[in-house]
């Protein structure tokens, strides 16, 4: 992974301004070359993390493949907001089949390209957490296991947003959704063992697995480019906050995504053939409360009195991630 992370300390969000960078290291998105793969005019909500993530990821993939790219898309918000008949926001060859088969459709495209001797054309499959961790999981695992030449990108907003915010296997414990109501003795989602799809992807020993958030778009672009430089099955899991489903302000999407990483709740790393090869360390550690409090889906935790036991449970998960992935700078960890 030759990518050199760009570190800037700006006030507030840590957002890196491209204007502060030399042109050759600026993001794809800021250049004249960007392809607008997912063009403006689509119907996503204000502040949609998924639209932002998809735009960056696909333009980076286009850049990396010299515009030789085909995308397969699962049913979900991204599909619905980008292709309301008779319009489409996609400026790349794009197919939507059904909800649960995106990885398999992508396998078919890759097979067709191979048999036709067009190996320069590459395939990206994309879906939300439902289309990846739940209904699309069988096809995803099959694609990984066969090591098909596909990059699968999961835009994880931790619930079924397209159908009105219902729980998925990516929904965190305690989160309120339409099917995990904030009522009863244990309000919100139950705490399960979690379904850690990046770890499951690594267990398939595929060449490349990475996680990213829409808070670090240089990092996201770099990971997509890295992935496109590799043949075989690849997986990138991107945390994309959803203002509607999470109940945060539209302008806070990037801040919330950053807090997910800075609390340790969402570890950002890369792995090759089942081994973690790099982690994005936490730059200014925050308690989970800083992440939870701005989101209405966790509002029931902050009543009077606050539900400190559940907050502690979430903090323990963050602490475990920090230990497991070594998310702190060594001096800070010591």
């Amino acid at each position: 992974m030759s990518y050199q992370p760009v570190k800037f300390y700006q006030t507030g969000t840590f957002t890196v301004g491209n204007r502060l960078l030399p042109p050759d290291v600026r993001s794809v998105q800021s250049t004249q070359r960007r392809t607008n793969s997912l063009n403006s005019g689509h119907r996503a909500c204000q502040g949609c993390g998924e639209a932002l993530g998809a735009r960056y990821a696909m333009d980076a993939a286009m850049e990396a493949t010299d515009r030789q790219l085909i995308a397969a898309n699962a049913t979900g918000c991204l599909e619905v907001f980008s292709t309301p008949y008779p319009e489409t926001s996609w400026q790349i060859p794009w197919i939507h089949s059904v909800f649960g088969n995106t990885a398999a459709v992508a396998t078919g495209i890759a097979a067709a390209l191979k048999v036709k001797g067009r190996s320069e054309v590459r395939v990206v499959a994309q879906g939300g957490d439902g289309g990846t961790t739940d209904i699309g999981f069988g096809c995803l695992s099959g694609m990984f296991e066969r090591n098909d030449d596909v990059l699968f990108i999961c835009y994880d907003n931790e619930a079924y947003m397209n159908t009105g915010v219902q729980r998925s296997s990516a929904t965190p414990g305690a989160a309120r959704t339409a099917t995990t109501m904030a009522v009863g003795e244990a309000p919100g989602n139950v705490f399960g063992q979690g379904k850690n799809v990046p770890a499951i992807a690594m267990a398939h020993e595929i060449p490349y697995v990475a996680t990213a958030t829409v808070a670090e778009l240089h990092d996201l672009e770099a990971k997509v480019k890295t992935a496109m430089g590799i043949r075989g099955a690849r997986y990138i899991h991107i945390l994309v906050p959803c203002p509607l489903g999470w109940g945060h302000a539209s302008q806070d999407t990037i801040r919330i995504a950053r807090l997910a990483k800075e609390t340790g709740l969402f570890p950002v790393f890369e792995a090759a053939y089942g081994e973690v090869t790099s982690v994005s360390r936490i730059r200014r550690r925050q308690p989970v409360e800083a992440y939870l409090r701005p989101q209405k889906r966790f509002a029931h935790l902050f009543g009077d009195p606050p539900n400190s036991a559940v907050i502690a449970q979430l903090q323990a998960l963050a602490d475990r991630n920090i230990r497991r992935y070594g998310l702190l700078e060594p001096q800070e960890a010591a």
């Binding site: 089949s97 059904v98 088969n101 078919g108 495209i109 067709a112 069988g138 695992s141």
Partner: peptide, 18 residues
């Protein structure tokens, strides 16, 4: 890994011209 995938792979392949 399943018939669902079998038809889905066929869909992708056919859509890509095979």
């Amino acid at each position: 890994e399943s018939e669902f995938a079998a038809m889905s792979v066929a869909i992708g392949a056919s859509a890509a011209g095979a």
